[in-house]
Computed example of a mutant assay.
Amino acid sequence: MIFTANKGQTSYGEAIGILLLDTTIPFIQGDVGNATSYDYPVRYKTIEGLTGERIFNHDYSFIDKMVAGAKELEQEGVKAITGDCGFMAIFNREVKESVNIPVFLSSLLQIPFIRSTLPDSAKIGIITANSKSLTSEVFEKIGILDKKNLVIYGLEEEKNFKAAAIDEIETLDSDAIRQEVLCVAKKIIAEHPETRSFLLECSMLPPYSEAVQLATGFPVYDFITMIDYAYSTIVKKRFEDVM
């Protein structure tokens, strides 16, 4: 078999490219920003200057930098592009139009699929990093115009999550954050008993998905479920012709 080098590509085998915020948060295993969260290699690119504060404020001045970063990842050989913040939804349209590979910048893109699995009366519990910033505008940018069955609760007032993810104190107490996420999930169930699935919006939350699933008994979707699914579509498993 003969292989040909791709111009501008210096390494190979990284099918998923990930655009990162410019933060100083420890990325533990399970976080989108930790490469050991995947069973396959990924490639990262930081969007300089795009801080958590700016993404929460929907700073559209970074569209050009996001597009440039996506184009660089495509040139470097990735087959699909995601991000490490659900609020990157505000850039999804422009970025996907700029490259020739799939783009899925926000975990919120899973909502139509989750809805299709549930009765019309069921609700989806969304646990987000910042409920104040998760406005209708964010959903509209990814084509979600109806929020009627979405129950949105934020972690912006939870002491340990706020310290690590918003204040960026450069340390992270994972046990404490797990308990905060569980408390919010249980609150959603108590106040909205029609809830039948959870979506953890923030890229820092997949490490706590198992705890939420075990505590509630409901399916839990997060950034990693989305990225793993996308990977399975661009790198297909080979099956032998046997029975």
Rank of each mutant, 00 (worst) to 15 (best):
Y229S: 14
K237E: 09
T36L: 08
E97H: 14
K159T: 05
I144A: 02
G13W: 02
K96I: 12
T117Y: 00
F218L: 11
L19W: 06
K148W: 07
S11D: 02
G17W: 01
V67W: 05
A165E: 01
M66S: 03
D22R: 09
F62W: 00
P193I: 14
N34T: 03
Y208A: 02
G30A: 15
L50M: 10
I114W: 09
K45P: 00
S61W: 12
R43A: 15
C85D: 00
R115N: 12
E53W: 07
K132C: 12
Y44N: 10
A129P: 13
E240W: 09
S133H: 03
C183F: 12
E94S: 13
A15F: 06
A215Y: 06
I144G: 13
I177H: 03
E240F: 14
K186G: 10
A5Q: 05
A185P: 09
R54G: 03
K186D: 09
L118C: 01
L21V: 05
K187Y: 09
I28K: 00
F139S: 09
C202R: 09
I90D: 00
N92M: 13
Y12A: 15
V184A: 07
Y208T: 05
T233P: 02
E72T: 11
S136Q: 15
E210C: 10
T82M: 08
G17F: 01
A89T: 01
T135H: 03
F104V: 05
T24W: 02
A211S: 14
V42N: 01
S197E: 07
A176E: 05
I169H: 00
A5I: 11
T128V: 10
